[in-house]
Amino acid sequence: MLNTIWAVMILIAVLYGSLTGRMSEVTNAALDGAGEAISLCITMAGVVALWMGLMEIASKAGLIARLTKGIEPFLHFMFPRLPKGHPAGEYISANIIANVLGLGWACTPAGLKAMEALAGLEAERGNPEYLSEGSGKSRRASKEMCTFLILNISSLQLIPVNMIAYRSQYGSSDPTAIIVPAIVATLFSSLVAVVYCKIKDRN
């Protein structure tokens, strides 16, 4: 995906730049962009290291495990047909908590495991599409998978660590001012996701 986007951006830039006669600006922008990326990473490195350091303490103190356990009622509400104690539940919880805490890098592995476990659940339920590996039949997503992905994409996030770092790098007078509005917005988008999944789940 990114291969196409990146190539298209570069190609358009050079073609359009030559049409508008702004080739020297394009040249400068290419060189400046590379330098800017490095200075941005220096700011980011500080913020991300701080955050990951705190998260390591939280994890050692058992806070993350407790949070993961704490959302079990929510999990049961969203996935009523998921058997209690099924490994999928654990992965889904870990993925949601990683999302909430802004550990974007940690949530993908748990998310992929969750999808595999949900596929396993379909096989346990005797869904023929999931029983044989590569039978040529195309698999339909289970309701649990749809719900999990919609929740994941609506991305409930507590503190947008990266955005704060970017804002401070570009001279914001108050980089953290967006935290509460962002929480309100993310709660709203997640609420819409929850309601939609519940309606679809019922039919």
């Binding site: 358009i12 730049g17 702004r22 600006e25 394009v26 922008a29 962009g33």
Partner: peptide, 8 residues
């Protein structure tokens, strides 16, 4: 940066 500079 290149896209912006090109005026696109």
């Amino acid at each position: 940066g290149m896209l912006r500079a090109s005026g696109f």
